[in-house]
Computed example of a mutant assay.
Amino acid sequence: MDCHRAETYVLRELREHLSPTLHYHGLHHTLDVVAQAQLLAEGEGITDLEDLALLRTAAHYHDAGFLTTYQGHEAAGCELARRVLPGMDYSPAQIELICSLIMATRLPQSPGDLLLAKILCDADLDYLGRSEDFWPISHTLRTELEAHGSVVDDQTWNEGQVKFLSAHHYWTATATARGEANKQARLAEVRALLR
């Protein structure tokens, strides 16, 4: 596996070709997910170098489908991975694992029993349990959704936030320990806005 080449390729594509309307799902989000996946893998005791490399590749490619589509971007990301990763010495089994990790992040998330998928799912929504940047990041998501035709008033947006935060749960013990208390605090803040 030439992980460096695979990462360099997708980062260049994201940097040069992502729509500027992706205020939330931009390159910054991908880089954040990569960083959070590494921290969560460490917390979960993942030490196998191949597993770590495949998780890292999946994190880099998990939203690459936004290069070609907004709806169904996970499947489009898998198409990209299946197209380019064989040329970077990834085996068919490695590519399918990467795609299963990417598809697990589709909402509602469904990682099954695969720990690497649970880690990627938690990394993808890590901001929900962060006190320092939950509000700015949620604002970028609202701005992006509005840019793609989902204009909602404050009441409807906050009701949606309450529903999403209430339904969300972490898949790993590490993410739960890091983020659950902060997420509950953010949920209380959004509920307060609705009063």
Results as ranks from 00 to 15, higher is better:
Q109K: 14
M103N: 05
G72K: 03
D153I: 14
G87L: 10
F134K: 07
S100R: 15
G77E: 13
W171Q: 15
T143E: 14
A167Q: 09
P92I: 00
T68W: 01
K163F: 10
G129T: 01
I137K: 14
A147M: 12
Q36V: 14
G26S: 10
S131R: 13
T30H: 05
T174A: 09
L125C: 07
L128T: 06
A167H: 06
A185L: 07
A76G: 08
I137T: 15
Y90W: 05
Q155I: 09
D126H: 15
A104D: 11
L101S: 11
P86T: 00
R83I: 02
A53D: 11
Y61H: 03
V10R: 06
D153K: 14
A173M: 08
G160T: 00
D32L: 01
L22E: 00
L55S: 10
A181Q: 15
F164V: 11
T172F: 12
T47C: 15
K163I: 06
T21F: 06
L97S: 07
R83V: 03
V34S: 01
L18P: 04
S100F: 03
L115E: 08
G160I: 10
G179K: 10
I102T: 07
A64S: 11
R191I: 02
S110Y: 04
T68G: 12
P108E: 09
W157G: 08
G149E: 04
E96V: 02
G45L: 15
R56I: 09
Y24L: 00
T174S: 06
Y127R: 06
A123N: 00
W135F: 15
E180K: 06
V151A: 14
V162M: 01
E146G: 12
A167D: 08
G77H: 01
A6H: 01
T140N: 13
D89Q: 14
T8L: 03
E144K: 09
P136Y: 03
L97C: 09
L116W: 05
R15E: 13
Y90T: 00
A147I: 14
G129A: 00
M103K: 07
G77T: 02
L125S: 05
A123C: 01
L31A: 01
A75Q: 09
A64I: 02
V34W: 05
G43P: 03
R191D: 05
D113Q: 11
R178D: 04
H139Y: 11
Q71C: 06
D154P: 07
Q38L: 15
V33Q: 00
T68M: 06
L39R: 14
V34P: 02
A58I: 04
L187Q: 03
L115F: 07
M88R: 00
F164Q: 12
H168R: 08
I119C: 11
L115H: 09
E79L: 11
H4W: 12
